[in-house]
Amino acid sequence: MEGLKKLTGYRTHISIIADILDTAREYSYEGHDKGATVTHLIRRANVPHRRLSSLVSELKASGLLKEVPEESRYQISEKGMEFLKTYRQFKGFAEGFGLRV
């Protein structure tokens, strides 16, 4: 576990949010238009279920993620796409300085 942590480094809150949104994006447009399940999000974001639930609620409340009615699946919203694009731009900027966003 420690070796894995050394390879990947710590993750910031914003990078976990970006992972969740990116997973939702993959299941919103690329032939999987039903949306991502909680399992998909947990696998990619690599966070416990309880933490994921609070993050998903936060993202839904801010309009970045939308829930598919009666399916417990999540899709990225237009606003979420915009956020992801901006995040990637500034991730490149921070990485230029050897830092994480």
């Binding site: 910031t12 914003i14 956020f83 901006t86 995040y87 731009q89 500034f90 900027f93 921070a94 300085f97 830092l99 994480r100 966003v101």
Partner: peptide, 17 residues
């Protein structure tokens, strides 16, 4: 540019930059 990044994504590192 760093401020625009901080305003958009709220990263503490961008605030410090």
């Amino acid at each position: 540019f760093a401020y625009a990044g901080y305003a958009a994504v709220g990263s503490p590192n961008l605030l410090r930059l």
